[in-house]
């Protein structure tokens, strides 16, 4: 999905980070370089480090990825506020490129939540 979003890749052209993204039940080590995902493998990977992690409950992702999400389930930080997600680690790259990560993690909305 990201590869088809030229504008998002352009906005993320300075994003270079190894992060942990996914659900509280299954997260993925995601390597992003110049705004493109170049590697994504299920966690845990022995001794693999990550800079920041954003993990939400499976129910939270289902609600978040609805084409028109319900109030309180529509934003990454709405999920953390209601304790349906956690943001951990060194969050500086996440905050530096906050809109990029919001848009990246909302991409499945366009397909009704099918990643």
């Amino acid at each position: 999905m990201l590869d088809r979003d030229v504008a998002l890749i352009q906005r993320g052209r300075l994003v270079d980070v190894d992060c942990l993204l996914g659900s509280t039940e299954q997260a993925f080590h995601v390597a992003i370089r110049a705004g493109r995902i170049i590697d994504m493998v299920p966690a845990p990977v022995l001794m693999r480090s990550w800079t920041f992690g954003y993990r939400a409950t499976p129910d939270a992702w289902t609600a978040f990825w609805q084409p028109m999400p319900k109030a309180g389930w529509h934003d990454l930080l709405a999920l953390t506020k209601r304790s349906a997600a956690t943001l951990e680690g060194d969050v500086r790259p996440f905050m530096t490129h906050l809109q990029y990560f919001k848009d990246l993690l909302a991409l499945p909305r366009a397909t009704g939540g099918v990643a």
Binding site: D75, L77, K102
Partner: peptide, 27 residues
């Protein structure tokens, strides 16, 4: 729901982070 110290620091674009934070408050 967030730490306001992220809003004004030399290593993060203030305009971008302020807008990105509040973007989730738009329906």
């Amino acid at each position: 729901w967030y730490d306001t110290s992220w809003l004004n620091r030399p290593d993060i674009h203030g305009g971008e982070v302020c807008a990105a934070l509040v973007s989730g408050l738009v329906a």
